[in-house]
Design a protein around this nucleic acid. Structure first.
Length: 698
DNA sequence: AATAGCTTCATTTAGACAGCATGTC
DNA sequence: CTAAATGAAGCTATT
């Protein structure tokens, strides 16, 4: 990609900046221009939060648009994508900005000038060979250090490598990492680094026994109030503004918020927020949260529903809430800076017991301190472990260098997924091309491709064995599996089981089958549950399609059974709260499970249809609707009426309204059950004006 | 006899993308 | 190779 008129474009950029009231550029911004941002050079900007990376991205987009190209902005999280979409829409008023993430795929993507998408969504667009991509000149990759992530990194690595090979300008933004040179060389990019921040960040380490916080240039004493070092530190710095508290578990986050809330006083504004929380967050959790919000504190973790999380974020951003205790959801995700950050622990339980978090993770959290434009400085406090010398902790984390980013493209799971995607979308058509591609990945560039190629050959064999690939070409089935975006191994397991199963299959059977798949998040089992789960497994043995399998271990089958049972309760209309209690989930957890299951059931319905398993396909399609709404078979039709969910549908059914037709014909009765307004809106949405229906006063 | 309070022992521990076509109580 | 908070169960002291 080359600019038609670099000089003109550059002038345009200057004027555009002035119009936005930006007269002076931050160091990374200046450097990015010097290193060829407007000449469509690839860039890797590796700098701390707040150093001005955002404007570099915006300038790159502006430059692409001015030269007649389209631009793409990639982020790792849906929440960030929504934020970015909103802000880019404001900035580029004259251009079409579109958003494409799992939840939401804008219909106008085909004509968008700027597209904001998650990595996986971009992967999907590449797999579909969307013609729109040809017009893209620049791709901004936010948080590119995610390539090192075991789970999500491989997809990003493949996506960016493909875009690079397509000749797109890559403007990659990264937190500070240990080896920016490696990333730059992978991207064929000019390296832009600078450690300047607009708000000074003071990082301290607290000795929990002496209550002293060790900073670079001084030691500060914290007053002991609650006999909890972390919370007392938060209280200490809250005198100067809001505090963000990173807790090590959900429970601890909740307790922290509860304790702090007791020391704060309600006012008019917090009471209003509490009222909103009460209305919008259902059940016990809503009540618990509302009580704290009323006094200006809150907690934030993935057990909360999305709505609840957004509410907490908004309340904090507005200033009403003074204290938020969060698990790492908030560290990488939302842009929610605070005057002070307190990190209560730097160790975390893992499979191998207690393990220290990485320096990068620490920096990610600490970097949230200091609100640009509001604070002169930000303060972060890391609480040392009781017996650890604070000086050593300071050395390790505050003075420590973030770790190197290494390719994660090596795991079998990552390879088989990526490979199928590459082959199905014809990005590689021969072994030679495959090798060439791998040489261009981060793995190939930094470690030499030989090892990766060996592993890739093995994955290729697996794909062939599963009937997804022949030679280096995708079979029709392989194309469908790639399009549905499920793990090839899951597809193999599921198809095998469906083919074997001739007789009738219950919801539990299907749910267990998809839950066994690698795409379904696994819930750990509590030891008290294991016995009961074995009992159920025996009792309902005939319903299960997978008992043991070459690719499914007994333990995953058992924990999948737990997930399947919880989802079965969901589609049997048990109240969310009852399910949550029974299985030890939070409402947010259940939402994630039912969403994921709905996606998988949909995908496998399509795949089953493709191979001629029509009965299974239809049953799965019905189950998808049941999962989405949490209803039994008989309510599936009703729930498809606009504004009718699981609760209203059940009420209608019990009143004798059993179908859409009933609903329309007996609108008077329906109105008595769910209210006049709902019926009116529903009929209008279905294209039937309210006037068509006679209203009978109850 | 009921119960608050303490001790002991076992148990548990963060997060979150994707398909598809539009609106819960 | 590694910890610590939580919660249930069991027990004692108190009213």
């Amino acid at each position: 990609m080359r600019a038609q008129n670099p000089e003109g474009a550059r002038l345009g950029l200057k004027e555009w900046l002035e119009e936005r009231g930006i007269r002076r550029l931050f160091p990374v911004q200046e450097l990015a221009l010097q290193k060829g941002l407007t000449e469509f050079k690839n860039l890797l900007v590796s700098a701390p939060t707040g150093s001005g990376k955002t404007l570099v991205a915006e300038m790159a987009i502006k430059n692409a648009l001015d030269n007649g190209y389209k631009a793409v902005y990639l982020t790792p999280l849906r929440s960030l994508a929504f934020e970015k979409y909103a802000s880019l829409k404001k900035i580029f008023k004259d251009s079409k900005v579109a958003l494409s993430v799992g939840d939401y795929h804008a219909p106008e993507v085909g004509e968008a000038d700027v597209l904001v998408a998650t990595y996986e969504r971009m992967d999907s667009l590449l797999r579909h060979n969307s013609p729109w991509l040809k017009e893209v000149g620049t791709v901004v990759v936010d948080e590119v250090h995610y390539v090192g992530d075991e789970e999500r990194g491989p997809t990003l690595e493949v996506v960016v490598t493909r875009l690079k090979l397509m000749g797109k300008q890559i403007v990659a933004l990264s937190a500070t990492v240990g080896n920016p040179e490696d990333l730059a060389s992978w991207l064929d990019a000019e390296l832009v680094t600078h450690d300047w921040r607009p708000v000074k960040l003071e990082e301290g380490v607290m000795d929990p026994s002496s209550y002293e916080v060790l900073f670079e240039d001084r030691v500060e004493e914290v007053k002991e109030v609650l006999s909890d070092p972390g919370l007392d530190a938060a209280l200490h710095y809250m005198r100067e503004g809001q505090a963000l508290y990173f807790a090590s578990t959900r429970k601890r986050a909740e307790n922290a918020a509860k304790k702090i809330s007791k020391l704060l006083k309600p006012d008019k504004v917090t009471k209003e927020w509490a009222e909103r929380v009460r209305i919008e967050v259902e059940g016990e959790l809503g009540e618990v949260l509302a009580k704290m919000v009323e006094r200006g504190a809150a907690f934030h973790h993935a057990g909360l529903t999305n709505e609840a999380r957004l509410l907490v974020e908004e309340a904090f951003r507005s200033g009403a809430i003074k204290f938020v205790a969060a698990t790492p959801t908030l560290a990488a995700g939302v842009n929610l800076p605070a005057r002070a950050v307190v990190i209560e622990r730097y160790t975390r339980y893992t499979d191998e017991g207690e393990a220290p978090i990485s320096v990068s993770e620490y920096k990610q959290m600490a970097g949230r301190a200091g609100r640009p434009g509001l604070d002169v400085k930000g303060t972060s406090v890391l609480v040392a472990r009781p017996k650890a010398p604070p000086e050593e902790v300071y050395e390790r984390y505050v003075l420590g260098q973030p770790e190197d980013v290494r390719s994660a493209l090596t795991s079998a799971r990552a390879l088989r997924r990526s490979l199928l995607g590459l082959i199905a979308s014809k990005a590689v058509n021969s072994e030679a091309e495959l090798v060439e591609f791998i040489e261009e990945t981060l793995f190939g560039v930094t470690e030499g491709a030989a090892n990766a190629i060996d592993d890739a050959r093995r994955s290729l064999e697996f794909l062939k064995g599963a009937g997804l690939v022949e030679g280096v070409k995708a079979t029709p089935l392989g194309t469908v599996v790639a399009k549905q975006y499920v793990d090839p191994l899951g597809a193999k397991v599921v198809l095998g089981a469906l083919k074997r199963r001739k007789g009738k299959t219950t919801a539990l059977g299907y749910l267990h089958l998809v839950a066994v798949t690698p795409d379904m998040p696994k819930r750990g089992l509590r030891s008290s549950e294991v016995r009961e789960l074995w009992r159920v497994a025996e009792e309902r043995f005939d319903e299960l399609l997978i008992r043991d399998d070459e690719y499914v271990s007994e333990s995953t089958a058992l924990s999948a059974l737990k997930v399947a049972l919880a989802l079965e309760s969901w589609v049997k209309e048990e109240p969310e709260e009852v399910i949550a209690k029974k299985y030890g989930f939070y409402p947010g957890d259940l939402r994630v499970l039912s969403d994921t299951a709905a996606w998988l059931v949909h995908a496998y319905s399509e795949i089953a249809k493709f191979v001629g398993l029509y009965k299974h396909s239809e049953a799965l399609a019905e189950l998808e609707l049941r999962l989405k709404y949490g209803v039994s078979e008989e309510l599936v039709e009703l729930v498809q009426i606009p504004y009718i969910g699981r609760v209203r549908a059940r009420a209608l059914w019990n009143a004798g309204i059993r179908s859409k037709e009933d609903f329309v014909k007996r609108a008077d009765l329906a109105a008595r059950v769910v209210g006049k307004g709902v019926v009116k809106r529903a009929l209008e949405a279905m294209g039937l004006g309210y006037g068509l229906v006679k209203w009978v006063k109850p």
